[in-house]
Amino acid sequence: MTATIAETTTSRRNFLANGIKAIAGFFILALGIPLTGFTISSALKKDKHDWIEAAELGDLSDDKPTRITYHYRRKDGWMTTESRKTAFVVKEGNDAYTVFASRCTHLGCGLDWDATTNQFKCPCHGGVFDAHGNVVEGPPPRPLVKLGCKIEGRKLFVMEA
């Protein structure tokens, strides 16, 4: 059977419909690309991290983790804010320290040091870590996060991971 004209040629109607689709497509792209970039842009920005003065060595305990609180200025969108965080400093030897972020590696709750069992305990879902940051029990999938640290003039400096 031979094809009829209607089947082989584009009707005026189809031609116009395709034209409208092409124009709509152009507008969707011309808007969609910039607006996507606009939306994700702040998420793509990397935070700049500097050394933060966190504690005097004399204030740190020799035999148990010391909870320290440090403050630093952070660029938060259009503002610069003062942030406050806590961490635990564990003395590993002469002038050797490990600094653990006091954030549970499960879903981020703040940890407490339990002096009776010598463990870090998470109040949220029962995560437990030992003094070296290893998971003892509960849902946390990873050991505690270590912060960068250095000593300068009897002071401990940390850097956000």
Partner: peptide, 28 residues
């Protein structure tokens, strides 16, 4: 509106942020 803040403390700074720091911000 993702970035704009309607408060005297932040309005101007948030618009400047859109204009200068957000990708395609000056275009939008």
């Amino acid at each position: 509106m993702l970035y704009y803040v309607p408060s005297p403390d932040h309005a101007y700074a948030s618009v400047t942020y859109i204009q200068d720091e957000v990708m395609f911000g000056s275009l939008v």
